[in-house]
Computed example of a mutant assay.
Amino acid sequence: MEVETVTDYQKVKVAKKIKKMFGHINPQTSIELCPIRDIMALASDKWSILIILYLGFFPVLRFNQLKKKVFGISNKVLSERLKTLERDGYLSRKAYAEVPIRVEYQLTNFGHSYLQKLLDLTEWVDTYKDIIRENRLKYGAL
């Protein structure tokens, strides 16, 4: 599979977007102050992405259901990611006064808007996964 050619117009369009995004940032002081980096790091780690994707497929999930679906995540990391995603507005948490307590998680409207962008990215990965694997083989990474 061959990667599509990026036209000069597309390159110029991307360059303008990047300049608009980063043009006002001083490179010497931006390392710790970049909000894009901060937000992207929290919302795009592998665990958060999986949590958001599963909550997109299953509208409401409890902690243990998420733990089973997000294979390999520890209770501590899942709890941390859920708190972070709730704090930033991607999902909501609803606790029921029952014994034992029942807690459910679901995406907010904001979380659904992010899910749409994640789906675009996952479609891109699915389209180009063979090229990535070939490149890894050439590099000796597999």
Rank of each mutant, 00 (worst) to 15 (best):
R133N: 04
E2A: 14
L118G: 01
E4L: 14
N64L: 11
L66W: 07
T29L: 10
K19E: 12
L66R: 00
I131H: 02
H24T: 12
V3W: 15
K46L: 13
E4P: 10
G72H: 01
G89W: 10
S74M: 05
D8A: 11
Y96F: 08
P59V: 14
M40L: 14
Y9N: 04
V70M: 05
F110R: 10
Y105D: 08
D130I: 06
L82P: 01
L50F: 05
L142K: 06
F58G: 13
A15T: 08
K11P: 03
H24D: 05
Q28G: 04
S92A: 04
V77Q: 12
A15P: 05
T84M: 05
I132M: 12
K76F: 02
T29G: 07
C34D: 08
F58T: 00
F22D: 01
R102S: 03
N109L: 13
I39W: 13
T29A: 09
L91F: 10
R102N: 00
I101S: 13
D88K: 08
N26Q: 03
Q65D: 15
L61K: 02
I132R: 07
I31R: 00
Y139G: 03
L78R: 01
L121Y: 14
P100G: 07
K16M: 14
Y90H: 06
A15Y: 09
K20I: 01
A97L: 07
A141S: 09
E32V: 12
E104F: 13
T7F: 05
V125C: 13
A141Y: 10
V3A: 10
L61C: 11
D38Y: 09
S79E: 11
P35G: 02
E80R: 11
Y128F: 12
T7L: 11
W47Q: 07
R37D: 06
K83Y: 15
K129F: 06
W124Y: 13
E4K: 11
Y105A: 06
N64W: 15
I36Q: 01
F63V: 00
Q106L: 12
I31G: 04
L82H: 01
A43H: 08
P59C: 01
L55V: 05
I25T: 03
L119P: 02
F63P: 10
F22I: 09
I25F: 10
E4S: 10
P100A: 10
H24W: 08
Y105F: 01
E98A: 14
Y139K: 14
I25K: 06
V125W: 06
I101V: 11
K20P: 04
K69P: 05
I36H: 08
V12T: 11
R136S: 08
V70G: 00
C34F: 05
I51R: 01
F57P: 04
I132A: 12
I51M: 07
V60A: 03
T108C: 07
W47D: 14
I31K: 11
L78M: 02
I36L: 09
Y105W: 08
L119Q: 14
K138N: 08
L137E: 15
M21C: 12
S74G: 02
K11N: 12
D126Q: 15
T108K: 08
L61N: 03
R93E: 10
P27I: 06
D120S: 09
I73G: 00
N26P: 07
L50A: 15
L91V: 01
Q28I: 12
N109A: 12
I39D: 13
L85E: 04
V3K: 11
E80F: 14
S74C: 00
K67P: 03
K69S: 04
R81V: 00
D88C: 02
I25R: 10
L142R: 10
